[in-house]
Design a protein around this nucleic acid. Structure first.
Lengths: 344, 344
DNA sequence: GTTAGTTGGTAGAACGATCTAACAGCAGAA
DNA sequence: TTCTGCTGTTAGATCGTTCTACCAACTAAC
């Protein structure tokens, strides 16, 4: 931070006014080639570095946006973050990356701090349990905000996220098409709106296919790298265990695969599995994992685009980008289950 | 950015001077409880938000650090970034996250821009092909810098990273202990200093174990999610293919597993595999992947700690944190190869 | 009754840029 | 000759804070 040479020093050295130097720095065409060169020369001579914060203070602008995610280690958020960084960079913005770690209190603190730092806007993936007040405040102070990934019932903001309801339906339909009739939904944290929507899609598709909903077949848990194993135990212990499962995300699914092997069961053959997210590792598992692709890259770049529009045009009506999920069939979908076939 | 109510408005409203408000905001004890309360009340009343940039301009401070990595999608960098964010947050700092995408030119631009934004310091994972000039400039302008992950021959800066040489040795020793005598080194980009060090460790351990080095057994390639397959093809085509392989990282290793299956070979049984990084997915692959754990979390938190020390104490002698790699044996290490056993 | 020290607060410059309004100097038109 | 308009440049205020130096009022000591 030791800053010594300023625009004033350049002005003195080049024998022009402070204003002129400023105009040169910003490439204003009104400055003659002659002066421009003299100023440029002084800049190199003195080793000047531009102080963007001072400029931003005066001009009330900012090249920074905030990104609040829950957990960078979740590959969906990794992909999201990477694509937002790329989109922001392409438009000359920097990204402040912060993790709320599913704590609404931390999230409040972070949002406040980002506002104090004068970000041009922010992209927020609301933590489970976020209070509405936060968004009331943001709306009040007219901070440009794009809500991402997690559906949030607030029509005042832009939104970019996957269609989780449709995703849930797609997954069930795929398993029903394989002849499955007892289908579990494993993993995900209760109260997580993404899970709720996938679950709602699951219910809806069960109904549409004339299947009975069995409460014992949906198991929730805190998402960790191994939680799927515990979730699986619960449904395997049932008198009439499921022949297939939707897993809250690909992590859970891969963890469930390991759980199955512990019981001497082969994923895909003894239980059909399908995950959500479409993370790259799904293609590398054994058996390869069927999944519902929720294109994080597209969600991210669209969130960035929405935010940029909002910054440029604060009064425009809020808009929504809903990413259509895509079914990716791989080995874990298996073939028709024995019982399923017998029952037909 | 629409900022209206400032410290002046608070001062007027509370009937005190601007200076007093500033002192209250910073919790200075010289202000009487009475005035403090009056000021606090006005702050709430008017809905004031602190402008940290203005404060930073005056006080020549900053709560932001820059983090330059190559590619966030690489799980090692994901983990590194997450842990740096956490360490920075714990100390009241924000992180500007940027990706150089292995382009030295982009990296130069980004560093320059971060300096202009007045970051307190930065953590840099040098892109392959970085020019020394960049660091000369940084050193000249006394920007606090910690180099991370990629070894970089510059004693003027702090460094935090794994011991890649030792890691290479460890991997070879583990395979030799299983009786392997033809060991390949697959993947990684030529010119990447991390790879070079692992390779040097590989050479050194081969020699130590009395094994002949065969140039045909080291294959380099641009790291993608599937490059391991191509690398594998090259060594399988040899008259005398290897019975085991070090893979540049866990990605490459998992990709090699898939390549083996395409040839009807079983990873672990027909070819022993060991990766580098210790990414969580390694535990979830089938067979589970042996790997050399290079603790990204530790590398990250130590990089953050070194940078913070540097910021607090710019004149201290540079220091280095070298993370000791750890061998993690899993199924992919297999058992002694047939030929290996026969040869004994 | 002067002096010295403490307590609580303030005025005005400063940080390093941009913005507004104006100003020479000159060309061309009336 | 005077006026108008353009070109290139500038002085001074300003953005929202902090910093330095100083001050008034009061207490305690000599």
């Amino acid at each position: 931070m030791k800053r010594s040479v300023t625009i004033n020093d350049i002005a003195d050295h080049a024998g022009v006014s402070r204003s002129t130097v400023s105009l040169v720095l910003r490439g204003n065409p009104r400055i003659s080639d002659d002066t421009r060169e003299r100023v440029r020369h002084s800049i190199r001579e003195l080793g000047y570095t531009y102080n963007r914060n001072a400029a931003n203070l005066r001009s009330q602008t900012s090249q920074a946006i905030g990104l609040i995610i829950n957990d960078l280690r979740n590959p969906f958020f990794t992909e999201l973050t990477a694509s937002i960084e790329e989109a922001a960079d392409a438009r000359g913005y920097f990204v402040y990356l912060v993790q709320s770690r599913e704590s609404p209190e931390r999230q409040n603190r972070l949002v406040q701090s980002l506002v104090e730092h004068g970000v041009a806007g922010m992209i927020i993936c609301p933590a489970t349990g976020t209070d509405r007040d936060l968004f009331d405040r943001l709306h009040l102070q007219k901070t440009p905000v794009c809500i991402a990934v997690r559906p949030w019932p607030d029509e005042r903001f832009d939104f970019s996220g996957p269609d989780n309801f449709r995703a849930g339906q797609l997954a069930v339909d795929a398993l029903v098409a394989q002849g499955h009739r007892r289908i579990a939904f494993l993993g995900g944290e209760r109260g997580n709106p993404s899970r709720d929507d996938r679950l709602a899609g699951y219910f809806s598709a069960l109904q549409k296919n004339g299947l009975r909903f069995d409460d014992a077949l949906t198991v929730a848990s805190r998402p960790t790298r191994t939680s799927g194993i515990d979730d699986l135990e619960q449904v395997l212990a049932l008198a009439d265990p499921p022949t297939a499962a939707l897993c809250y995300n690909d992590f859970v699914a891969i963890s469930v695969m390991h759980g199955l092997r512990r019981h001497g069961l082969e994923p895909g053959r003894d239980m059909a599995l399908i995950g959500f997210d479409g993370m790259p590792e799904a293609e590398m598992s054994h058996p390869t994992l069927s999944t519902i692709l929720l294109d994080a890259e597209s969600v991210g770049s669209n969130a960035a685009a929405l935010l940029m529009n909002r910054i440029a045009n604060p009064e425009a009506a809020p808009s929504r980008w809903i990413e259509t999920p895509k079914l990716i069939l791989r080995e874990s979908i298996g073939t028709a289950p024995d019982r399923g076939t017998a029952a037909l």
